[in-house]
Design a protein around this nucleic acid. Structure first.
Lengths: 200, 200
DNA sequence: CCTGTTGGTCAACGCTTGTTGGCTAACGTA
DNA sequence: TACGTTAGCCAACAAGCGTTGACCAACAGG
């Protein structure tokens, strides 16, 4: 928690600093870390392997990110970029959301990393929960302004994360073989119902 | 794969042998292993910790199960005990299945272990896939006899596993707080639709 | 009673892990 | 040019891991 005095490493991005000479290395480490965490989870993604991917010494990782936990925290800053659904016809919000989530999952490995690590790492699980709470919940409130929004968001998350789990993490062959269109056609009505249907 | 000749340990349950004196220890190890794997995943569940839980020496685990992988394989033999849906009115199969899965997840930690480990361990992921293929797929075929049964089973799995993930593994507070009835009321129509609705 | 088999402990092995500190060399200003 | 700062490598540490083999104690059958 406390910053040590003597080492010159600022430990985080200097808020008002100009670009440092080591920024390339820093992002190389971060990129390698994301790939490894996403592919192998927390324990199997070793600092040594990440450093080798980034073509630097393992000790550099410690210098720039303090510890493995610090590295993971830095690697998992993430924004879902959920679209504003104001202009979307209310019967299309389910389809729009499912499409957006699939995009997010396929273009960005941070979500896979977060899911793979969160299963064994409490900090990552809480981080994931925060993301869904802070980013999905407001959208859900917009789509269904009754008091049950948190529960509706949780239901949406269960279906979205279940699809991500079986398709991108566990990689069930049948699920992987489904086309984007099939997935959207099947999941959109589910999400739509969780968002807008009366409580059963 | 090959049984070594000299050591007297039969390595597996003797198919025609009478009960051994060490059976109590064997099951103690297996119970402890299931708990640890379910709670912490593969890498964090150390043989030493499992042995301590079972109040025996770590080397016993090796003697009885050969290796950590062997122990995990033995700990994850599992039967979903899916009910025969022949006598169930066809509009109730969704509700019946959701209820059954929730029962399974709450009374047996093997599923949690399998999910937590499968996320980082290919063998466990394949094991989970087998279970769903061999045990869920036939039930799905029974409920929807068209050619799309594998895809329908995959969709059901995505929703069931997503709920299990967020409720029993990631433990999202809102999801944990949902009552059994709420979950069933919301998820049953989803599963029902995946099983019996026309392809969208 | 003896003797082979089984159940169990103990101490150590080789290896990998995260982490540390000291050293060199390049940079950038004064 | 001189010198403090930064970027980077190297070698090592302590701890924990799965795994092994030697050794002891309790049992069972002749």
């Amino acid at each position: 928690m406390s910053e040590s005095v003597s080492p010159p490493a600022p430990a985080g991005t200097g808020p008002s600093g100009r670009p440092r000479r080591s920024d390339a290395t820093r992002t190389a480490i971060l990129t390698a870390a994301r790939e490894r965490f996403a592919a192998e989870g927390y324990e199997r993604a070793t600092i040594r392997a990440i450093a080798k991917d980034a073509r630097i010494d393992p000790s550099m990782v410690m210098r720039y990110y303090g510890s493995k936990e610090g590295l993971f925290a830095a690697a998992c800053v993430f924004d879902l970029h959920l679209p504003n659904l104001d202009g979307t016809p209310s019967q299309d919000v389910g389809r729009t959301l499912v499409n957006h989530f699939l995009d997010m999952w396929e273009e960005n490995e941070v979500l896979t990393a977060l899911l793979r690590v969160g299963v064994t790492n409490t900090a990552a699980a809480e981080r994931m929960q925060e993301i869904f709470k802070e980013q999905l919940l407001p959208v859900v409130r917009q789509a269904s302004p009754d008091a049950g929004a948190p529960a509706r968001a949780a239901l949406v998350a269960s279906q979205i994360l279940g699809m991500a789990l079986t398709r991108y993490v566990l990689r069930f062959p049948v699920t992987v073989a489904l086309s984007r269109e099939e997935i959207v056609d099947w999941l959109a009505p589910t999400v739509q119902r969780y968002l807008t249907a009366d409580k059963p």
